[in-house]
Design a protein around this nucleic acid. Structure first.
Lengths: 250, 250
DNA sequence: GAGTGGTCTAGACCACGGA
DNA sequence: CCGTGGTCTAGACCACTCT
């Protein structure tokens, strides 16, 4: 059987790329939701009229992009934040405690409000006419009531999270906030852009962090996108590198 | 022809992994040096008694790791720093000018000395009995004689760079210092570990950077390894995020 | 045992680059 | 023109997981 790749003069893209896009489309449409199992390789090959090898290549690429997860003997699944934190192409957390015995930091919501987006930076979220944004402020520390190591300001455009309340946020326990977006609002972050700058802590921050001013920190501005490229989260993470450090590569 | 993969009970590793390691060995031994062209796929398949597809898979993995470069119609080549800056798995430069018209920063060597390694941090380089290290201090700015945006302290164990002098360093023009290591001393950095912390600039640094104290910066400690895992470079990069920012992902 | 993904082969045709 | 890598197919066997 001759390959479609050559006969189809109109479509310049390789077949496995086309298969990739078709699979992504199914996920975007919600035909295959988070944690759902996909048909097996031969079934997919039949669906898209390509060979098993071509399907395999498309699937492997999607695994590498963090969109799918495969288990030998079990099947191919749509990745979810709850079961697979490395869903996103880029890293979610850059910081690690210097003390190896401390593993996960405690995150606490200290403020929640619905506001009109202000300032040049907030215009990044591309809100529509009159749309508001939710502003969540969190503080992270390694131990309960310990020194704060991360000040986290999250801005969420209302249209992606209709009816969001503090109760919804705190009612359930989510390993990371991206699992909340995904499971409660069907918002899957597929890509994020992180830009960092050095800053000085203000007095309140220094006090909460248990350090003397002047004290430096690393401010990360994060812009999170869904698979359509829309901005679904704008976030400012101010990290104090007092008992933690930023792991860029290892 | 049955595959060796199943019949060879001793070796549990997949064939393409074994081929990968054999190719890396040839590069380490210097049989194939930087920029050298490898035999074509069928020749390699014959050499290692595997199919063309298996060789292809090994080669593609090595391309992804930045060890090889392939060009359709030309051949497969050993990656070099001069021609291919993305040789290393991890990123070499995290910073970008905020001003898009400025592209590449000017780097200037301000001090060069051979010293006995001191301090806890320098013990990281794992020097041998009585061995010394070269200490190179560089300063980077976007414009000639402009404000310094990066203070760069490089420590090189003597045994990897015998007879290194300031003249050798400045005699030729290298796009990045890793090309110098590779071309002059045959030291190829294959992996680097970067850890960042926020710091305060001292008075001298603030003056050179053209800012008022207190001023924060991002200090990156870099440990660079060759393919045997030996530490061939220890580096401290203090970056001022005044006219530049740290791009973590895009 | 049935079904899944993981590895491997042999062979085909196409696209690109340089002599 | 020839040699290179890039894509694709059809089919084989193995290893893993669950029932």
């Amino acid at each position: 059987m001759p390959s479609l790749y050559y006969s189809d003069a109109v479509c310049s893209k390789p077949l496995f790329e086309q298969v990739k896009e078709k699979i992504i489309d199914q996920i975007r449409k919600g035909v295959w939701q988070a944690n759902a199992m996909l048909p097996n390789e031969l079934a997919l090959a039949d669906m898209y009229s390509v060979s098993q090898g071509t399907v395999r290549r498309a699937l492997q690429a999607l695994v590498q992009e963090g969109i799918l997860v495969r288990h030998q003997g079990r099947g191919t699944f749509v990745a979810s934040f709850r079961r697979n934190v490395s869903n996103v192409k880029t890293r979610i957390n850059w910081f690690e405690s210097d003390d190896v015995t401390l593993k996960v930091g405690q995150s606490k919501i200290v403020s929640f409000e619905k506001i009109a987006p202000l300032g040049k930076v907030l215009q990044r979220v591309g809100t529509q006419q009159g749309e508001r944004v939710f502003h969540i402020r969190r503080e992270t520390s390694w131990a309960p009531n310990g020194e704060v190591v991360c000040f986290d300001d999250i801005y969420l455009p209302e249209r992606f999270y209709p009816g969001l309340t503090l109760e919804k946020l705190t009612s359930s326990d989510y390993p990371i906030i991206y699992a909340f977006y995904q499971e409660v609002y069907g918002v899957t972050v597929t890509h994020m852009q992180d830009v960092a700058r050095a800053v000085l802590l203000n007095l309140e921050q220094a006090q909460k962090a248990g350090v003397q001013t002047p004290f430096p920190g690393i401010m990360i501005q994060r812009t999170s996108h869904n698979s359509y490229g829309e901005i679904v989260e704008l976030r400012f993470l101010l990290n104090v590198t007092e008992n933690q450090s930023m792991i860029l590569s290892r």
